[in-house]
């Protein structure tokens, strides 16, 4: 009995040389980069005691402090909602202009993407510092910072969603004689809406957390109180702030999950 003829593989394919080589290379790079940057993993473990000490001090939350932080926490949520909404709304046209399946003009697409890369490169802390200088201490600076930060992040997430859509309905709308804008409205938006909502809420969640940090720079919200409690080594207050922020994040996460189920 003869063995049926099958295509032959070269030894490179047979022993998965490429896969192994790439994995090996990545491992070498990882080790080399930790050497070069001088990361000392041992220090993490030897100083772990201090970390535990902090945790212990935070383990008695000063519950009466909750009343004080309700107002700034609400302000933080408002800042996050406003900033995310403005950023996401601005992101939609840019995401469309960056999607390779909608815009075939490479130059235009490249230009938009370059602009988005630039926006994403600016760290949010730098933005906050600039806008606090421009608008003064307060939540306006925070909202503008969050809007720009969300814009950069959301537009990338959005255009990646757009690039995965089914192109069939676009073809159909084109054959009907629809204009480009109508095609986007009728065939693209329905396909991406639920993912948009989901990414919007994800960004909102990130912004709630980010705005706690922005408060450090005077951009308003709960962050101001977080900074104060840390400066005063009042870790029982810090614990309350962290728990309250966690509660907000959990609520947003719950809403997000619910909406995804409903909209899908």
């Amino acid at each position: 009995m003869s063995i049926p003829e099958v295509p032959r593989r070269s030894w490179i394919q047979r022993w998965h040389v490429k896969g192994i080589a790439v994995t090996g290379l990545l491992l070498v790079l990882l080790v080399a980069s930790s050497r070069m940057t001088g990361v000392d993993v041992g220090m993490f473990f030897s100083n772990f005691g201090q970390f535990l000490n902090l945790l212990v001090r935070m383990s008695h939350p000063a519950w009466e402090y909750t009343n004080v932080i309700v107002q700034p926490l609400l302000e933080t949520i408002q800042m996050a909602i406003l900033g995310t909404t403005i950023g996401a709304a601005l992101a939609v046209p840019f995401a469309i202009l960056s999607a390779s399946n909608l815009i075939h003009n490479r130059f235009l697409r490249g230009l938009t993407r370059l602009f988005l890369d630039l926006v994403r490169t600016l760290p949010d802390l730098l933005l906050a510092a600039i806008f606090v200088a421009v608008f003064g201490i307060g939540s306006t600076a925070g909202v503008v910072t969050l809007a720009i930060f969300s814009f950069g992040m959301v537009s990338k997430l959005f255009y990646e969603v757009i690039e995965t859509i089914d192109m069939g309905s676009l073809e159909a709308l084109t054959s009907v004689g629809a204009s480009k804008v109508t095609i986007i409205w009728y065939a693209v938006l329905p396909q991406i809406l639920n993912q948009f909502v989901s990414y919007f809420l994800y960004t909102l969640e990130i912004n709630v957390r980010a705005s706690t940090v922005l408060g450090y720079l005077g951009a308003g919200g709960i962050g101001v109180f977080l900074q104060r409690s840390l400066n005063e080594f009042n870790y029982s207050q810090t614990a309350v702030i962290i728990l309250a922020t966690l509660a907000v994040v959990l609520v947003i996460d719950g809403i997000s999950n619910h909406l995804r189920r409903v909209l899908l």
């Binding site: 089914d166 069939g168 309905s169 073809e171 159909a172 709308l173 084109t174 054959s175 009907v176 004689g177 629809a178 204009s179 109508t182 009728y186 065939a187 329905p190 396909q191 809406l193």
Partner: peptide, 28 residues
């Protein structure tokens, strides 16, 4: 293109929209 209708192997409807909206989209 308006006076030439086209029908596809994969139907090419907007799956997440209603039948009414899909049909009306032929009129845009």
């Amino acid at each position: 293109r308006r006076k030439i209708g086209m029908i596809f192997q994969g139907f090419n409807l907007v799956n997440r929209s209603s039948v009414e909206r899909n049909v009306l989209s032929g009129r845009v």
